[in-house]
Design a protein around this nucleic acid. Structure first.
Lengths: 129, 129
DNA sequence: CGGTATCCTAGGGGATACTG
DNA sequence: CAGTATCCCCTAGGATACCG
């Protein structure tokens, strides 16, 4: 492996001011990526549908996540002020471009997770008498 | 294994048992992704080099992160038992394939972060009188 | 229905000190 | 140098209750 590109670093997420660092805070959030994924699959979902789709999420975290994603321009929030209020969430154009990246993650997981499991089993077997 | 229905096909990270969910726990970890990135850029690094590259990481978190990544078969740990001990870390083949995904994330961030910033500014300006 | 507001506790993670 | 061990604080986030 050539390591001669050390002074022309492609990856500067090591500084707190790099956009990469902040992206990690956003999509690295468990509920955020799950929300993006859910909206990517279903296209448009109501609050309650999201809550039941993303199993295990509390309404606090769901709301918080949706607000953050809305603020970042990743999801669109459309309110229909009917008698019981109705709110639909969907990905923005920006969100859809992020979806592609999230899907790349998912694909990696599905392909390689068996290897990860094997590595874990081997590690645990070796290191733990 | 999670079954894929016809109209909700690919993405089942919503169940806690799906590999996607566990991947999120790994790469979603701030220090883990930064570590992968660092090793991706530099090829091979000693413990102390990692510590100084990933600015802000404590040795506790660095060690913990390294152990987890090693256990998952993502990084390789090579000990040279010289007088002061020397330990080098590098990405495994599996780790390098994950690096590609992490880089996809980084690229998305660098391309779209201006839009995210604009969205944030607009949101904050609108919602805060 | 789709949230907000409050309380409260598990554990993530920093600082520090010690060891092989 | 490369960790391990301890203490300890702080906040992410679940449970619960109430509102438009």
């Amino acid at each position: 492996m050539p390591e001669t590109t050390a002074d022309a670093p492609a990856f500067n997420a090591f500084s707190a001011h790099c956009p990469s660092r902040r992206l990690l805070d956003t999509i690295g959030d468990k509920w955020a990526s799950l929300t993006i994924a859910a909206l990517g699959v279903h296209g448009e979902l109501r609050y309650s549908q999201l809550a039941s789709t993303i199993e295990g999420v509390s309404q606090k975290m769901l709301t918080q996540t949706l607000r953050n994603l809305e603020r970042d321009g990743i999801v669109d929030r459309r309110v229909t002020p009917t008698v019981p209020i109705r709110v639909d969430y969907s990905l923005t154009e920006l969100g859809r471009s992020l979806l592609a990246v999230v899907c790349a993650l998912k694909d990696w997981a599905e392909v390689h997770m068996p290897q990860v499991d094997a590595a874990r089993a081997a590690y645990d077997a070796a290191a733990r008498p």
